[in-house]
Simulated scan of single mutants.
Amino acid sequence: MSREATPIYYCPFCAEEDLRPVEEPQGAWRCGACARVFSVQLARVDTTRIPGRIAEAEALQQESRP
């Protein structure tokens, strides 16, 4: 996974859009409205809850039944 700063469009604290990337800590953003510095990190993507995958799994289960 890349360590580059991913664009963030809204401050998670005040919902303003005036955000600027900062150098330290790496990948962090500064909100011009509330002056908070924050970073957002993606932990993982839960592929078990994607609707298309759920439907696909159900279809496979139905095909495998006698």
Results as ranks from 00 to 15, higher is better:
Ile54His: 08
Cys34Phe: 02
Ile8Val: 15
Cys14Asp: 04
Val37Pro: 11
Gln41Val: 15
Leu19Asn: 04
Ser2Ile: 09
Thr47Met: 11
Ala33Gly: 00
Glu63Val: 09
Arg3Gln: 09
Asp46Leu: 11
Ser64Gly: 07
Thr6His: 04
Asp18Cys: 04
Ile50Glu: 13
Pro51Ile: 11
Arg30Lys: 14
Ala59Glu: 13
Ala59Thr: 07
Thr48Cys: 11
Cys11Thr: 03
Val37Cys: 06
Ala57Asp: 10
Ala43Lys: 12
Glu16Pro: 02
Pro51Asn: 08
Met1Ala: 13
Arg30Thr: 01
Phe38Met: 05
Arg3Trp: 09
Ala43Leu: 15
Ser39Gln: 13
Ala28Ile: 01
Leu42Tyr: 07
Ala5Glu: 03
Asp18Thr: 07
Ala35Phe: 13
Ala57Thr: 14
Gly32Lys: 03
Cys14Val: 07
Gln41Asn: 12
Val45Lys: 07
Cys14Asn: 04
Glu56Lys: 09
Gly52Asn: 06
Glu4Ala: 13
Ala28Val: 02
Phe13Val: 11
Glu16Gln: 14
Tyr10Met: 07
Ile54Gln: 08
Arg36Glu: 08
Phe13His: 12
Gly27Glu: 02
Tyr9Val: 09
Met1Thr: 10
Ile8Asn: 01
Ile50Pro: 04
Phe13Lys: 09
Thr48Ser: 15
Cys34Lys: 04
Arg53Pro: 02
Cys14Leu: 07
Val37Lys: 01
Arg65Cys: 05
Arg30Leu: 10
Arg53Gly: 09
Ala33Asp: 00
Asp46Lys: 05
Ile8Cys: 04
Glu24Ser: 15
Ile50Phe: 15
Val45Thr: 15
Arg3Pro: 03
Glu56Tyr: 14
Glu58Val: 13
Val37Trp: 03
Arg20Gln: 13
Leu42Asn: 06
Glu17Trp: 05
Ala55Pro: 06
Trp29Thr: 00
Glu58Met: 15
Ala59Gly: 03
Cys14Gly: 05
Gly32Tyr: 00
Gly27His: 01
Ala28Asn: 01
Ala33Tyr: 00
Pro51Glu: 11
